[in-house]
């Protein structure tokens, strides 16, 4: 089976009107850790879509949820407001955008390495065919154990400790580990 990289657009980075400040607003926002996967930031995950600052020092942040019911969204919103307010921005407005839909293909290389370094297997690229058609979910892709590197692992539960993860077990080292499901 051939894997196709997703053609979806990557999160954009507008610098808005106040170029210098907005850049740092992006950096501050991007550094907010994910509440459920604190080893990665919302920048790493591609959840942060856009940060703009207007002339009066107000910051507009766009985030996109990983899953429709992801309970972390409210915490992320609160963390963004807190971090940016502490950094001196006068007003922070966080908007949730749904389109285009988040995909695990937006997780950055840094995010993938950080996940793996902390024992969470990163997702394989989403198959182009599985996109909008909602076709059958492919379960045949081997997932490498993030602890010992063995590809001989099996899925113990497709629905793991959070909506975005499945639980797998390594047949070689016998360790269970989380796997971020491609979506």
């Amino acid at each position: 089976m051939t894997l196709h990289p997703s053609p979806s657009p990557s999160p954009s980075r507008s610098t808005g009107t106040g170029t210098g400040r907005a850049r740092s607003a992006w950096d501050i926002a991007a550094a907010v850790p994910d509440p459920e996967l604190p080893v990665v930031t919302i920048g790493d995950l591609g959840i942060l879509r856009d940060v703009t600052e207007n002339d009066t020092g107000c910051v507009h942040v766009q985030i996109t949820p990983t899953y429709s019911g992801c309970p972390a969204v409210e915490t992320i919103r609160a963390d963004l407001v807190e971090q940016l307010t502490c950094a001196g921005f006068r007003r922070v407005d966080v908007e949730q955008v749904l389109w285009p839909a988040w995909t695990t293909d937006w997780i950055t290389e840094q995010g993938r390495s950080r996940l793996e370094a902390h024992g969470i297997a990163p997702p394989a690229p989403v198959r182009a065919a599985a996109g909008a058609s909602g076709g059958p979910v492919d379960v045949e892709i081997a997932v490498r154990c993030p602890r010992c590197g063995s590809p001989d692992t099996h899925e113990a539960n497709r629905f793991g400790s959070t909506a975005c993860k499945a639980l797998r077990v390594c047949r070689s080292c016998r360790e269970p580990f989380d796997h971020v499901k491609p979506i």
Binding site: L98, W99, A101, I183
Partner: peptide, 8 residues
Amino acid sequence: AKAVKEVA
């Protein structure tokens, strides 16, 4: 667009 991926 989100739902279709979850429902799969």
